[in-house]
Design a protein around this nucleic acid. Structure first.
Length: 471
RNA sequence: GACCCUAUCGUCCAGCGGUUAGGACAUCGCCCUUUCACGGCGAGAACACGGGUUCGAAUCCCGUUAGGGUCGCCA
């Protein structure tokens, strides 16, 4: 038997402008796997100077809601994945919602009907006569794949039935008479002049069928790159409910988009050296779909958290302030002006794993009415002489003229020496009095930011309160 | 069941015929330090198994096993 491929996926000229697309169906949320698919498409478009197109595959009318589409738009925008053509931005190959492209599908179906590739079955559904030949494709990620379509069969072992491209018209069903994914996907890729299809590996086994459709329509197929799926930490398939599965979760969870995007870049792709924390411009420059891994990646949220912290640490302070602001506002932290917030943020930023951590580390800088952590109180007062040390420190600090971290440290240490105790014996009560807790940034810098008057007033109030509590 | 993809530390990623198998997250230890972090140093931790090919295999080939995917009038 001849092993000649029915057609090749390598016919496209290398010189044409790259056009890639992300084609989600509106299921109500944006899955991280989808987000990564979108990201890889976007990276490839930006790397090559091509176009990134967004197309909504909403042929299943029952699922098509505005809210579901909004989740896709919001998620992509949050990740900074701007599309050059698609809903909201338009373009020359629209409409970009499949639900609005009926006339186009009609035309293509007619073309197939005219050439004898398609027929109506006994129920009235439109079916594509599968050629059932040997299909050879060259996948950018998976390499050369041969599928003998003659051997395709159903679960029960019966030969594969012809592919439905349009549902039968029945009653009561929303999707009745609607077009089927495989067909509209192929038609749109032709119509939108898509040059490269970067999509999840779950479509790899569908691709031969798509290629048969391209051939029947007399069109040159795009090049394909099937990227491995993202699995849960335990290796099982990720579903909607799983931790980290939805992009919404990151937005609500205090992640910075740059970090999540960075994390997603590294799931299945790497620059082949040890670079991990990378600005997006560098990723765009170095991205190559041919270097995408073939192995499914398991999802490790802890590494994402670490990247998030690193991005928080490395971005300009003013940028961080802008991102932290909504979180402070939401927690009713009255930080005054953004400028006033900066010194505080500079002090605590290395403690922030998420933006949502900010209020807890910053609130006591902006109110005198902060709570005292009972555990911290118990711990500090458990040490004999704690309040005496705080009194001695108050007296010493009252005499400090040049109020800064250095003088405060010197003064505290000498007061401790005079009292004949270790520095910690002074530090802990002071921290508790000034912040209400046992953990926080450098005490001296904290007090410097707080200023002389507020510090001394806090010491006095703590002395009164904690002294009273003790009795 | 048929067909397709995959297989390196717990996890992510290097490695593409000759390496003490490298980096990162996580874990543990030490240092820094008033605390919590950040940071620094260090430790433990992997080539799924069996056959080949080769002077020599993590790397190439074939099996086995395991995981994933597809086989819809879902996308």
């Amino acid at each position: 038997m001849p092993r000649t491929p029915t057609f090749s996926t390598l016919r496209r000229p290398m010189s044409e402008q790259v056009r890639v697309r992300f084609a989600p169906s509106p299921t109500g949320y944006l899955h991280v796997g989808g987000a990564r698919t979108a990201l890889f498409n976007w990276l490839f478009a930006r790397h090559t100077g091509g176009k990134f197109i967004l197309r909504i595959e909403d042929t299943d009318a029952a699922r098509n809601t505005d809210a579901a589409m909004q989740a896709i738009y919001d998620g992509l925008r949050w990740l900074g994945l701007d599309w050059d053509e698609g809903p909201l931005v338009g373009g020359d190959h629209g409409p970009y919602l499949q639900s609005e492209r009926g006339a186009i599908y009609e035309r293509y179906a007619e073309k197939l009907r005219a050439s004898g590739h398609v027929y109506a079955d006994e129920n009235g559904a439109l079916r594509f006569r599968l050629p059932r030949k040997l299909v050879v494709m060259e996948d950018l990620v998976c390499g050369r794949i041969e599928v003998d379509r003659r051997k395709s069969q159903n679960r029960d072992g019966s030969p594969e039935a012809d592919m439905t491209i349009r549902r039968a018209i029945t009653d009561a069903n929303d999707a009745s008479g609607g077009w089927i994914f495989h067909f509209v996907n192929v038609v749109d890729d032709i119509e939108m002049k898509i040059t490269h299809v970067i999509r999840g590996e779950d479509h790899l086994s569908n691709t031969p069928k798509h290629l048969e459709l391209f051939e029947a329509l007399g069109a040159t197929p795009p090049r394909y790159a099937h990227i491995p799926l993202i699995l849960n930490k335990d290796g099982t398939k990720m579903s909607k409910r799983d931790q980290g599965a939805s992009v919404d979760g990151y937005i609500a969870g205090g992640y910075v988009p740059e970090a999540v995007r960075n994390f997603l870049c590294l799931l299945g792709w790497s620059p082949k050296d040890d670079r991990e924390i990378m600005p997006i411009a560098e990723v765009i420059e170095r991205f190559d779909p041919a270097q995408i891994n073939r192995k499914a990646a398991q999802f490790d949220l802890e590494k994402c958290d670490w990247l998030n912290q690193q991005h928080i640490l490395q971005m300009p302070l003013e940028t961080l302030a802008g991102k932290v602001e909504p979180w402070l506002t939401k927690a009713a932290v009255n930080f005054g002006t953004p400028a006033a917030m900066l010194p505080v943020l500079a002090l605590v930023r290395e403690r922030l794993k998420k933006l949502s951590d900010a209020p807890a580390w910053m609130d006591y800088f902006f109110t005198e009415d902060f709570p005292f952590d009972p555990e911290a109180v118990a711990k500090v007062l458990g040490k004999p002489g704690a309040l005496d040390h705080l009194r001695a420190l108050t007296a010493a600090y009252a005499g400090v003229t040049d109020w800064n971290a250095t003088t405060l440290e010197t003064s505290l240490k000498s007061a401790a020496t005079i009292a004949g105790v270790k520095v910690g014996e002074f530090v802990h009560p002071a921290r508790l009095a000034a912040t209400g807790r046992s953990v926080g940034a450098s005490l001296y810098h904290t007090l410097e930011v707080l200023g002389r008057d507020r510090t001394l007033a806090r010491f006095d109030r703590a002395l009164a309160k904690l002294g009273a509590d003790k009795i």
